[in-house]
Design a protein around this nucleic acid. Structure first.
Lengths: 339, 339
DNA sequence: CTGAAAGCGCTTACAG
DNA sequence: CTGAAAGCGCTTACAG
């Protein structure tokens, strides 16, 4: 039913090898035969099947992206960067979702063994070193995004440093009691951001009050949701000694936190983490993660590996930038803002 | 180097056919030989290559998604719905970006001919009927999302009706001068939304003032950006007779429009279109498009076609729901709100 | 420049 | 239940 290389070879009165050559610009084909083949192909609407080409060439020209099902804004902005960048190359993107569970390694293993891609990128997939080590054995190009492992090329953001910067800024403004809204406590980014927060507090000689580190009840998407932030801030407000300022593990939660403050008719300075597209318009101060650039860079690293330009893994660690907006006014400006 | 069905056949002392059967639970294989094969396979870390299976079976178990590069929130929420739904089935998602240009048909044609997927979904790809007709000839399952064409299954939202509802609501509140913020004028959704807006105005016996239909200068993503909305609202404000209320073609633009109002120290009721995740937290009234559900339904339709449950194209047209929030207070409440 | 043939790694009737 | 063989739709040395 669907037409193949044989059909057009027959009609053009050449061998299938010649047809193949025409479509690959490989080998030298006479202009005449080339035209004959192309004419027949056009007439019949022929186009080589990528599947068959991939098998024969042992190259699929596909880059497979592994992402946790909790697809959030972070992933989306990263993906946008990937999509724009990959358009420059002769590769295409295939996406596989994995469930965040104990058998995460098995799932990744399975995806790689299925062998669709020439290379694999994992976004926010967190495994321990021994797990990554197993995957390393397959000797296939892998780029990790939002994760670090020496054996693969990685792109990540220094969450500890970011949290430190945000918290320190608040402390420098003169606030002593700074709270933190976190998400799922055992999620990798949360662990790091809490750590940075603690460091900053300690470096300022302030005892960390465990009750100042809160999260909401809604644990969908690992707690990275507006509702979680809303709940968390509500908890903070209702505590005996509400903080004077707050560092929040993500912008999306900060959005909810701001709403909670509004609903409670109060306002304290808050700094988020991410810098999502809407953050600027909401006036949210935040630690900017260059998500789009990270996605773009990930593709570049992958292509360099695929084309053997890079032979050793490379590591890029971005330090997030503090972006100050209305949500964390200068200390002097507080009275005006908190109307 | 990488191990194949032959390797494990040899070691297990069976034919490759038997190995294949074990991995496909097809045919009856003795428990003993089955175990033997599986043991060897595990030991060698074997797993069938999807590429080869696809070629032999003439089925790739892949659903290909075609999306314009201007990937916006709409696409992202749709994709989330697709991802969650596809997890229930034995299919995987592959994404191809197309550039919105004259040769959009060629690009789609090319993607389909490459033949990766068993079925193709197009999100927000707008072509004329004769173009879709050409694609119909390939006789491969296609589902269109955010587009209508009789020959394929489609899922769309009634933009005209949605715009009509939003505008009518504003008019019923008592506003006479209602403006509209649109995006790229010749983009499909914009055309429809402007139409609905005009209908509503006309049905209320109000002359449509062309100057009341504005857009911003930034045409990235077809104008569906905050900055475009900001510019558009700024234009509206600066006009000789600013409107008393405003319908906006998208939430993302409405976000920018609200900021523009704030910066100009004024506020008129505004209703957006989409209901993005942040809209609730911003208090933006809007025409809700069930994007997630649309993505989910698209997968269902596709699978039904792939498994021959559906043999005829089906069409689902959602009418967007009016969701009222703080951005468009009741007429009575205006004085309080516009502080 | 062009063709015959082997091969990519599987599946699947067809026999037995 | 199991194997030999053809086939999926291409590519690519190897000859000529």
């Amino acid at each position: 039913m669907s037409i193949t290389i044989y059909d057009i070879a027959k009609q053009a009165e050449v061998s299938i090898a010649t047809v193949s050559r025409v479509f690959n610009d490989s080998g030298h084909v006479t202009a005449a035969t080339r035209k004959r083949v192309l004419d027949v192909a056009n007439q019949l609407g022929y186009h080589p099947r990528a599947l068959a080409q991939s098998l024969a060439r042992k190259k699929s020209k596909i880059i497979t992206v592994i992402v946790p099902v909790i697809s959030n804004y972070f992933f989306m902005e990263v993906l946008a960067g990937m999509q724009d960048k990959i358009a420059e190359y002769d590769y295409d993107l295939q996406i596989f979702n994995v469930k965040v569970a104990e058998d995460l390694l098995d799932q990744a293993d399975h995806i790689i063994k299925r062998g669709w891609g020439e290379g694999y990128m994992a976004i926010s997939v967190h495994l321990d070193d021994s797990s990554w080590e197993k995957l390393e054995k397959y000797d296939v190009p892998v780029v990790l995004l939002d994760e670090y492992y020496p054996g693969f090329s990685t792109i990540s953001v220094d969450s500890i440093e970011g949290a430190y910067i945000a918290t320190s800024h608040l402390l420098q403004q003169g606030y002593r009691s700074v709270g933190m809204i976190c998400a799922k406590p055992d999620s990798k980014p949360v662990i790091d951001r809490v750590l940075g927060y603690r460091h900053a507090m300690q470096d300022s000689g302030i005892m960390v009050d465990p009750e100042m580190i809160v999260t909401g009840e809604d644990m969908e998407r690992d707690g990275f949701t507006e509702s979680n932030g809303y709940q968390a801030m509500t908890n903070l407000i209702r505590s005996d000694t509400p903080p004077e300022a707050c560092f929040c593990a993500s912008d999306i939660q900060a959005l909810g936190a701001i709403k909670a403050m509004k609903d409670n008719n109060m306002r304290i300075p808050i700094i988020g983490f991410d810098d999502l597209e809407f953050s600027e318009y909401v006036g949210l101060s935040t630690m900017r993660q260059p998500m789009y650039d990270m996605g773009s860079l990930a593709i570049e690293k992958m292509v360099r590996q695929l084309e053997k330009t890079d032979t050793e893994p490379t590591h890029t660690i971005f330090t997030p930038d503090l972006v100050l907006r209305a949500s964390s006014p200068d200390f002097a400006g507080i009275s005006e803002e908190s109307g």
